[in-house]
Write a protein that binds this DNA or RNA. Structure first.
Lengths: 153, 153
DNA sequence: GTACTAAGTCGTAAAAATTACGATTAATGG
DNA sequence: CCATTAATCGTAATTTTTACGACTTAGTAC
């Protein structure tokens, strides 16, 4: 029953999030929880704008300010991540475990993937000397499987 | 004499750029050439805004529209690159040879580096299957040497 | 050189994305 | 339950990017 598993997973994420908020001194407001829940449920790395649209269904009075402010405080506290893109809209994800991104040139979709082989390799000495590295990530640009299928038709 | 070498280098870049423009069917306007020259001379991956400011000294009447439009046509024709960042302003570079970026959390500087070992390694099968990959890049997040020195004081 | 034509530019303004503000509301610790 | 203080709302300002029509210029052919 994959659906139930997913639900349980979300519940786990939510309680971990509540813990983390308390640890960071952030109040557990309804809006903050809902913003995080929405983001944690999304696999498409939504922008602030699209989160706003999705959340208005549940919370019709929520303001854009709340979305933007909440996203940036959560990012500051390292509870969510801002994703590197070339587009003008910033995009976010709740997935905090080490992973990498493939960005589709056509549909602008962002796909997560793992690459343990890369994670394990250490930087060449001359690169390591550039500074103190906290994070090492791969970004692939190309065309996703979905868009390739469409092209065939 | 490093300065002369740099100048020669720039001249080379400029004539290569002129060739490329002709090949792409782009007219060689004064503004377009100056925008490219400014970008090619910059190693700090400037934003449209800062290019605008720098160029106004030489071309006081240049408009923002021209900068933005030129940058996006040049990017379309693959003569320059838009850099992936998490900040709200897009940033650009003229450096087209394969390289990677270190982004400093403190000063937001973007530093180029080479990593041939990474460039040569091929993607794991399960990653390659995600789509047609055109580009594979590393992004390091951390603190640059310069900012580390400052901290010590 | 002159004239033609399409592309490019300028000045201005609109649109899109993000951030700010004061009044009000709600969460937390006691 | 109360007080304190962070967080939210509604609205508006700011910042970043894109668009529009009039005008200018580069490229080309004569």
């Amino acid at each position: 029953m994959p659906h139930i598993k997913k639900t349980k997973n979300l519940q786990k994420k939510m309680s971990a999030f509540e813990q983390a908020c308390r640890a960071a001194g952030l109040k557990l407001t309804h809006q903050r929880l809902e913003i995080y829940r929405e983001l944690a449920m999304s696999s498409d790395h939504p922008s602030a704008e699209s989160l706003y649209k999705r959340l208005k269904k549940k919370l019709p009075t929520i303001s854009q300010d709340t979305i933007y402010r909440t996203l940036s405080t959560l990012e500051e506290k390292k509870l969510i991540k801002k994703v590197q893109t070339v587009d003008s809209q910033a995009r976010f994800e709740a997935q905090m475990t080490q992973h990498h991104h493939l960005i589709c040139d056509k549909c602008k979709q962002i796909i997560n993937f793992q690459w343990k082989g890369f994670d394990d390799v250490s930087l060449p000495e001359e690169v390591a000397q550039l500074g103190q590295i906290h994070n090492k990530n791969v970004i692939l640009l190309g065309i996703c499987r979905e868009c390739l299928e469409k092209q065939k038709k």
